[in-house]
C-alpha cells in the first residue's frame, strides 16, 4: 500500500508535482478525458434532442430538407473520418511502441484526413450558399434579377436526387433563380404535402404546421425546412468546430512527437488526444444518417413505401 510513496527521489520527466507517480498521472488524464467526453455527449445531446423533437413533428419538411443535402459528399466524409480514426489509433499504437517516425507519419495522416473533411464541408457549405439554403437572411449569395438570365434554375447539385416526380411534372423547375436579398430559398413543398396528405402520412403537427386556413401554405412549409437547415448548420458547424480544435491538438501533438517526447512510459497525451479524435468521429457517424439519409427514400421514391 505504501510502496508508491516511499521513493520520492525518482522523478520521471513529465510527472507533474501533484501526482505521486506516472501511473496516477496517466489514469487521471484518461479519466479526465472520458469525463470531458461525457460532458461533450450531453452538449451534443441537447441539440440532438432539438433535432429529434422537430423531426418527430415535421418528418416531411425534414425529409425534403435532407434531400437537398449532398449524400455523396457526406458519404465521402464519413469514409475520410473512419480512416482518420484508424490512423489515429495507429498513432497511439506507435507511441506506445516508442516508434517516433511511424507515430509522426500517422499524426500527419490523421491531420490530412481531418483537413480533407473540413475541405469537403467547405465545398458543401459553398453549395448551400449558392443555392440559398443558409437559413439566415443575408448570408446567402445575392442573385439580382439582372443576373438571373445567366442562371437557369436553382440547379441541383450533381449528386442530389431530384426533388420529386411531382415537381418535375409541373415544370416549375425552370423558374429562374433570383435571390436579391440573400434570403433562404425554398420553392418546393406543396406537392410533397399533398402527397403526404393523400397517403395519410402527415403527423398532427404537420396538419397544423403546413396549412393556413385549410390550404397548404408553402411559406409555412418553408419555415419548417428552414428549421432543418438551421439544425443542419448548427450541428455540422459545432462538429466542424470540434474538428478544428482536434486539428490544433494534433498540431501540438505533432510537435511533441517530433521531439520524441512520447515513449512506452509516457504516451498519455497521445491516448487522450486519440479519445477526443474518436469521439468527434463518432459524432459524425450519428450526424451523417440523421441529416443526410433519413427520409430520403420517401421522396426519392415518390411514395410512402
Amino acid at each position: 500500500m505504501s510502496e508508491a510513496n516511499i521513493d520520492h527521489h525518482h522523478h520521471p520527466p513529465g510527472l507533474q508535482h501533484q501526482f505521486e507517480d506516472m501511473e496516477q498521472q496517466q489514469d487521471s488524464a484518461i479519466i479526465g478525458m472520458w469525463v470531458f467526453l461525457a460532458q461533450e455527449i450531453m452538449f451534443f445531446g441537447g441539440i440532438f434532442t432539438a433535432y429529434l423533437v422537430f423531426r418527430y413533428q415535421y418528418p416531411m419538411a425534414f425529409a425534403a430538407g435532407s434531400n437537398h443535402l449532398d449524400a455523396f459528399w457526406g458519404f465521402v466524409n464519413t469514409l475520410v473520418l473512419i480512416v482518420s480514426s484508424l490512423t489515429m489509433a495507429l498513432a497511439v499504437l506507435y507511441a506506445q511502441r516508442g516508434n517516433r517516425n511511424m507515430q509522426v507519419a500517422m499524426i500527419i495522416l490523421t491531420m490530412l484526413f481531418g483537413t480533407a473533411f473540413l475541405g469537403v464541408k467547405a465545398v458543401e457549405y459553398k453549395a448551400k450558399y449558392d443555392t440559398g439554403l443558409i437559413p439566415v437572411k443575408g448570408l446567402n449569395k445575392v442573385v439580382k434579377e439582372t443576373d438571373a438570365e445567366k442562371k437557369e434554375t436553382a440547379s441541383l447539385l450533381p449528386f442530389e436526387t431530384k426533388v420529386s416526380a411531382a415537381a418535375e411534372e409541373t415544370g416549375d423547375k425552370k423558374k429562374a433563380y433570383i435571390n436579391p436579398k440573400g434570403e433562404f430559398q425554398w420553392n418546393y413543398g406543396e406537392e410533397l404535402v399533398e402527397l403526404g396528405e393523400k397517403e395519410g402520412m402527415l403527423t398532427e403537427a404537420e396538419k397544423i404546421g403546413y396549412y393556413s386556413n385549410g390550404k397548404i401554405d408553402p411559406s409555412k412549409f418553408r419555415d419548417k425546412v428552414q428549421i432543418f437547415y438551421w439544425l443542419y448548420f448548427a450541428m455540422t458547424g459545432l462538429h466542424a468546430l470540434h474538428m478544428v480544435v482536434g486539428l490544433i491538438i494534433m498540431t501540438w501533438l505533432l510537435i511533441m512527437a517530433w521531439r520524441s517526447t512520447y515513449s512506452a512510459e509516457y504516451y498519455a497525451p497521445v491516448e487522450v488526444a486519440g479519445l477526443y479524435w474518436h469521439f468527434v468521429d463518432i459524432v459524425w457517424i450519428f450526424l451523417f444518417p440523421l441529416l443526410y439519409l433519413l427520409g430520403r427514400h420517401f421522396i426519392a421514391g415518390g411514395g410512402g413505401h
Binding site: V35, M42, F44, G46, A50, A234
Partner: peptide, 24 residues
C-alpha cells in the same frame, strides 16, 4: 458534468435564434 452542457447548448440556440431569427 452531465447537466451544464445541456443548458450551454440551449443558450447557444437561444442566442443564435435571437441574432439570426430562425425558429427553434
Amino acid at each position: 458534468i452531465l447537466g451544464t452542457p445541456v443548458v450551454a447548448i440551449t443558450i447557444v440556440l437561444l442566442a443564435l435564434e435571437r441574432i439570426a431569427r430562425v425558429g427553434i
